[in-house]
């Protein structure tokens, strides 16, 4: 569906996107993740033909973005970051204008606008000017704008930024519903969002791809590196380190007394592939320590993200 080959973009001397290659099949929801300034928006803008790449090629279906921009723009519905729409226009006038430009006529146009109004919950704001709308409502109008022609590819730049938790859930549901038959590319820096909506996650940092995998794989790949937290009473730091540090499968132990109640907070890092929980329990049981807490954390996307994108 979308092939990106060796895409590079320079702003004067600054390299915003550095030799990115990607292939996105039909019907996939892909999340583009990265810290601020990583090149997410620039990449999306090149995909939509708004920016011209410094080098590299983008093919969408059978069209080259550079050679047939209008055909490509007809296939793509795009919602730019923070939905920059004409602030002076009424919502209805705006949607009607987009429908005209997108080639919808007569009955089909009215029916499509009705559908989108239902889908995006725009009933009460059709006769308000866009400039008056709150950020969340504007975002919904933007979503309706992007979906107007029922495009095969939907590109959303930070679709949930600035929304309240309820609206985020709503937009996520909409995206997932669309993603069943369409190709969706969305950028975000909110990890839980990518985790909840995307089939595939591409993490970019400083213009380069640092990770590209199915969401589930990305989480499992590091799942072996588990961490276990314990809360122990009656235990001393030295004893804990000695008793637990020597256990099979434990890579590292840190212990620190909690300032509030004197309970010792112990964090164990496990070697990948091992599960020392039973051994830990047995070791604690053999002492006169009181076990108050025993929690296992799988390493989440957040720590993966931090590791991949931290400085140097």
């Amino acid at each position: 569906m979308i092939q990106v080959e060796d895409l590079t973009k320079f702003y004067n001397d600054l390299c915003a996107v550095d030799h990115i290659s990607l292939e996105i099949p039909k019907g996939e929801i892909m999340g583009l993740l990265g810290p601020n300034g990583a090149g997410k928006t620039t990449t999306l803008r090149m995909l939509t033909g708004y920016f011209k790449p410094t080098s590299g090629r983008i093919r969408i279906k059978d069209h080259d973005v550079d050679e047939q921009p209008v055909a490509v723009k007809g296939l793509i519905g795009y919602l730019p970051e923070s939905a920059p729409l004409y602030p002076g226009m009424l919502v209805y006038d705006y949607l009607s204008y987009i429908a005209d430009i997108r080639g919808l006529r007569g009955e089909a146009k009215i029916a499509r606008i009705r559908d989108l109004v239902d889908h995006c919950g725009l009933h009460d704001i059709m006769h308000k000017t866009i400039g008056e709308l709150s950020k969340g409502l504007k975002q919904r109008v933007g979503l309706a704008h992007a979906m107007m022609s029922d495009p095969e590819i939907l590109i959303l730049d930070e679709p949930t930024s600035g929304l309240d938790p309820n609206q985020i859930v709503e937009i996520r549901d909409i995206i997932r519903a669309i993603g069943q038959e369409k190709t969706v590319i969305l950028s975000t820096h909110i990890l839980s969002e990518a985790e909840a909506t995307c089939d595939r996650i591409v993490i970019i940092n400083k213009g380069r791809i640092v990770a590209d995998d199915r969401t589930a794989n990305l989480k499992n790949a590091t799942g072996g590196m588990r961490q276990i937290s314990l809360g122990l009473q009656n235990a001393t730091e030295a004893d804990t380190l000695q008793t637990l540090g020597t256990l099979e499968g434990v890579a590292d132990v840190t212990a620190r007394p909690n300032a509030d109640d004197g309970v010792l907070d112990v964090t164990l890092t496990c070697r990948s592939g091992s599960d020392p929980r039973a051994a830990i329990y047995a070791a604690v049981k053999a002492t006169d320590w009181i076990l108050l807490e025993f929690v296992q954390h799988a390493r989440d996307l957040e720590s993966i993200f931090r590791e991949l994108t931290k400085e140097n």
Partner: peptide
């Protein structure tokens, strides 16, 4: 200045 230039340029118009 409002940024709508980006929305305009990503519509199927030359």
């Amino acid at each position: 200045s409002t940024g709508s230039y980006e929305t305009l340029l990503t519509l199927p118009v030359t």
